[in-house]
């Protein structure tokens, strides 16, 4: 009499392939422990072919077998092997180099329009703040958060304002001040501007505009006291970099927001993903610029007391950024 189990197709199917599955399981376990680099050449070759066999087995088993335990095992095994076979295969060093040499500035140039929109928001805010302050001093208190002003307002004496700009006893320089500045107002603004852009652009634009308002009113206060040139120098040192970073972050936020608003032929999620490719590079650039700005603010501003030199440093660094954005990553013909 013939054995019923031997006749059953799914049992035969399993018996024929079981050894390969167990080998694959061992290979996957080894690769998971020590990474794919720990495999020998022959093992890596076997991993790929066993993986393909296992997926084929799974496809067949789904059709012919009703053994739930077998199906679950193959599902799990194929999935584990899949995760090993399709692991990221890029090197980190090359990635960072590529970002600075090519992909960063290229992303900037691709999204020039959005960045320009960011600058426009800031400039309009600045102009509005400036004109409103000249119309009435009281606007200053409306715009300016009290923590940021640190006593510098329409009530303060001109002498006090000058003493802040040209600080003769720089006590709070060095690392501590640098760290404190990095988490200061503008960094937060930049991150919020980027993150909030997803909500249909509006929060990003508003925040940038508001930041411009503060800046405009602050500048108008000093112009009124005849300190416009000096404040320009004081702000230029880090402000050129820092305010540009906020505008770029705003551009990235607007890019995300516009993907949500106008997804075109794609779904919103897909459009967001595509827009994110450039937006995240812009955000990294903005973060980098804020970092440099904090360095300048923490060290250079208090060390250099001459207004002319301050202008030179601030706008010089700005020109370097611009050169990077315009010239970086262009392919030589």
């Amino acid at each position: 009499m013939r054995d019923e189990a031997a006749l059953m197709r799914s049992a035969r199917f399993r018996a024929e392939r079981e050894q390969d599955w167990i080998k694959l399981e061992a290979l996957v376990a080894k690769a998971e422990r020590g990474g794919v680099q720990s495999l020998q050449f022959a093992e890596a070759r076997d991993l790929a072919s066993f993986y393909r066999q296992a997926t084929t087995s799974l496809a067949i088993a789904r059709e012919i077998s009703l053994d739930k335990a077998l199906l679950e095992y193959l599902e799990a095994l194929a999935a584990r092997a899949y995760l090993i076979v399709y692991a990221p295969q890029e090197r980190l060093g090359g990635l960072i180099g590529r970002f600075f040499a090519a992909s960063g500035p290229q992303a900037m140039r691709r999204s020039a329009l959005f960045v320009a929109a960011g600058f426009l928001c800031m400039a309009l805010g600045g102009l509005t703040g400036f004109l409103l302050y000249l119309e009435s001093n009281d606007w200053y208190y409306v715009f300016m958060p009290s923590g940021l002003a640190a006593g510098r307002g329409p009530d303060a004496s001109t002498e006090f304002l000058r003493s802040v700009i040209y600080d003769d006893s720089p006590a709070a320089t060095g690392l501590g001040a640098f760290a404190a500045y990095l988490f200061s107002h503008n960094t937060r603004i930049a991150i919020f501007v980027f993150g909030l852009g997803v909500f249909a652009c509006l929060p990003a634009i508003l925040l940038t505009f508001y930041n411009g308002l503060i800046f405009g009113a602050f500048y108008a206060l000093h112009v009124e006291r005849g300190l416009g040139w000096d404040l320009g120098g004081w702000l230029s040192v880090h402000g050129v970099t820092e305010l540009s970073a906020i505008c770029i972050a705003c551009g990235a936020g607007v890019q995300l927001g516009s993907a949500v608003l106008f997804p075109g032929q794609n779904t919103r999620k897909e459009a967001l993903r595509l827009a994110g490719r450039d937006a995240v590079k812009l955000a990294i650039i903005a973060a980098l610029m804020l970092f440099v700005a904090a360095l300048l603010e923490g060290f250079a501003r208090q060390l250099i007391q001459d207004a002319g030199a301050r202008y030179l440093i601030g706008w010089g660094v700005g020109a370097l950024w611009l050169a990077w954005f315009l010239l970086g990553g262009r392919s030589r013909r």
């Binding site: 189990a5 059953m8 799914s10 049992a11 399993r14 018996a15 079981e18 599955w21 167990i22 399981e25 053994d67 335990a69 077998l70 679950e72 095992y73 599902e75 799990a76 095994l77 999935a79 584990r80 995760l83 995300l256 999620k269 967001l272 993903r273 994110g276 937006a279 995240v280």
Partner: peptide, 21 residues
């Protein structure tokens, strides 16, 4: 969503014996 990823639970492959055999 932006990165096009999601997080999964790792399945555990356990080969039980074939009841029919």
């Amino acid at each position: 969503m932006l990165a096009g990823t999601h997080v999964i639970r790792l399945p555990v492959p356990i080969l039980l014996k074939d009841l029919a055999i």
